[in-house]
Design a protein around this nucleic acid. Structure first.
Lengths: 147, 147
DNA sequence: CTGCTTGCAAACGGTTTGCATTATT
DNA sequence: AATAATGCAAACCGTTTGCAAGCAG
């Protein structure tokens, strides 16, 4: 298990107490997803001066460096969690929590059911470059904004 | 192809010009996803008095009645589209548009590729009731908030 | 007629931004 | 010493809400 320090240093980011605390918290709960404010509320106990803006900037930076993944929820809140080995998500419509679901392939529905969750719906989201963008990319020089 | 009128009436909603216009626009572009403001901008040409709040209320109502689906994006915008037969989504990281992808099952990755899109990542989202909620549901009377 | 819907405008809330100060390298 | 990160507070912006006036049933 890697430490927050190593992870941060490995991406040539400056190591600050705030960054270490944020990432350490997430490392302590692998597979869990937090809102920025939930993270801050938790850390406020041991780091009472942690600013809201700092939490957001830190999370954005960690996403940009590929350490965290960002999940958009329908109620307008972004959730953050470790970017673990390829996996999928489970959203509980009752408690509205998000779970990570391990998967080596796309056809692992049984795996989810065996975890005790009871899936009623599945939503597959592919990300990549669409047909028309591929075409225009070969025409002109790529106009690809970084995601 | 059903009409906007029929669809609205079928859910015992009152038929208003605004509702008809919003839904008709979506019906004219099946498989496309719009932001609330994009819809309003489009309709403003023929319906210059359409209020922002009305657009939002209408879309929420249509989602609640199961006519539309709601998609949350990472940049804090909600997208709306027709709730067609079970399908999945494709997000183009280049033009940031969302596409619907037909699918009769979960294992239809090839289908996406054959559409000309080039998927680099897949994200499976399950929705339902999680293990712990199922347990507590059998303990006490269900405390399930409607999604 | 009754009460749901609209339009308008103000409120909301999560996230971003600017800038002086502080900490890391 | 140079540069990047923090804290604070204000700005942002998509969405929601409240309410008087208007329209559908």
């Amino acid at each position: 298990m890697v430490s927050a320090e190593d992870l941060i240093r490995s991406r040539q980011m400056r190591l600050t107490p705030q960054r270490r605390a944020v990432l350490a918290l997430l490392l302590d709960h692998p597979g869990r997803h937090w809102s920025a404010d939930a993270i801050r509320d938790q850390l406020l106990e041991t780091m009472p001066e942690l600013a809201r803006g700092t939490t957001y900037k830190t999370l954005n930076e960690l996403v940009r460096r590929g350490i965290l993944e960002e999940l958009a929820t329908v109620d307008g809140v972004l959730l953050y969690g470790l970017r673990l080995e390829p996996h999928h998500h489970f959203f509980c419509q009752s408690c509205r929590r998000w779970y990570d679901v391990a998967a080596e392939g796309v056809e692992r529905l049984r795996l989810v059911e065996s975890s005790g969750h009871f899936p009623e719906a599945v939503d597959l989201t592919f990300r990549g470059v669409c047909a028309s963008c591929r075409r225009s990319a070969s025409d002109t020089s790529a106009t690809t904004p970084d995601a």
